[in-house]
Amino acid sequence: MSENRLPHEKGFHISWDQIHRDSRALAWRLDGKGPDNGDWRAVVAITRGGMAPAMIVSRELDIRTVDTISVMSYHAGGGAANERREAKVLKSPDSELMGDGTGVLIIDDLVDSGKTLELVRKLYPNAHFATVYAKPEGEPMVDTFITGVSQDTWIFFPWDMALQYVEPYRGA
C-alpha cells in the first residue's frame, strides 16, 4: 500500500445489496431483545444515514412506528475529526413517543467518533442504540452493531456513490 494515500482512500465500499443484508442482520440480532416481551415500541432513524437501515429494521421486525432525529456534526461532505462541528439536534422525534427512550431502537448507519450517539444518548438514556457499522472510537456509544471497521477506514455508502470507472489499485 502506498504510504502517501489520503485517509479517505482506505475505503470500504458498500453496495445497496450489502447495506440491505447487513441491516437485515442487525434486525435479526435485535429481534426479541426489546423490553416489552422482546418487542420494541418504535424505531428512530438518525438522519440521514440511518434512514435506510431503520426502514429495513422496522420492516423486518414489523415495527410500524418510525420517526427521525436529525443531528448535524460534520461539515458538508464529511471531514476529518479536527474539522467536525459540535453535534447539535436539528429535528427531534415526537416527545410523547420517546419519553426516556425505553423500548425505542435508535438506528444509524455508522458510529464513527461517537459524538452523535453521545448527544442522542443524553436525550434518551434508556433507548437501545444500534448501528450497522462501528469504528473503535464510537463502539462504547453503541449497544448493537454488525461490522467493525478500523478508525482510519472511510465507508462509502451507496447513497453517496455513482457508478464510474475506477483505476486498478496497482495502476493501469
Rank of each mutant, 00 (worst) to 15 (best):
F12I: 06
I14R: 01
S15V: 06
S15C: 10
W16C: 07
W16K: 04
D17Q: 15
Q18N: 12
I19L: 11
H20Y: 15
R21M: 09
R21V: 06
D22Q: 14
S23T: 09
S23M: 06
R24H: 15
R24V: 15
R24E: 13
A25K: 10
L26Q: 01
W28I: 10
W28S: 13
R29E: 08
R29M: 10
G32S: 10
K33H: 14
G34P: 02
P35F: 05
D36E: 13
N37M: 04
G38R: 06
D39Y: 09
D39K: 15
D39W: 05
R41S: 10
A42L: 05
V44E: 01
A45L: 02
T47L: 15
T47G: 10
T47K: 09
T47W: 13
T47H: 11
T47M: 14
R48N: 13
R48V: 03
R48S: 06
R48E: 05
A52Y: 07
A54L: 02
A54S: 07
A54H: 00
A54K: 00
M55T: 07
M55Y: 04
V57R: 00
V57T: 02
R59T: 09
R59V: 02
L61D: 03
L61G: 02
L61Y: 04
D62I: 07
I63D: 00
I63N: 00
T65M: 10
T65A: 12
V66I: 14
D67S: 09
T68Q: 05
S70W: 08
M72Q: 14
M72K: 15
S73M: 14
S73L: 12
Y74A: 09
A76G: 09
A76I: 06
E83D: 10
R84A: 11
R85D: 14
E86L: 12
K88C: 14
K88L: 13
L90W: 10
K91Y: 09
K91V: 06
S92P: 00
P93K: 01
S95F: 07
E96Q: 14
L97Y: 04
M98C: 13
M98H: 03
G99N: 09
D100Y: 07
G101R: 00
T102W: 06
T102I: 05
G103P: 03
V104W: 03
V104H: 04
L105P: 01
I107R: 00
I107L: 01
D108A: 12
D108K: 09
D109M: 07
L110T: 14
L110S: 08
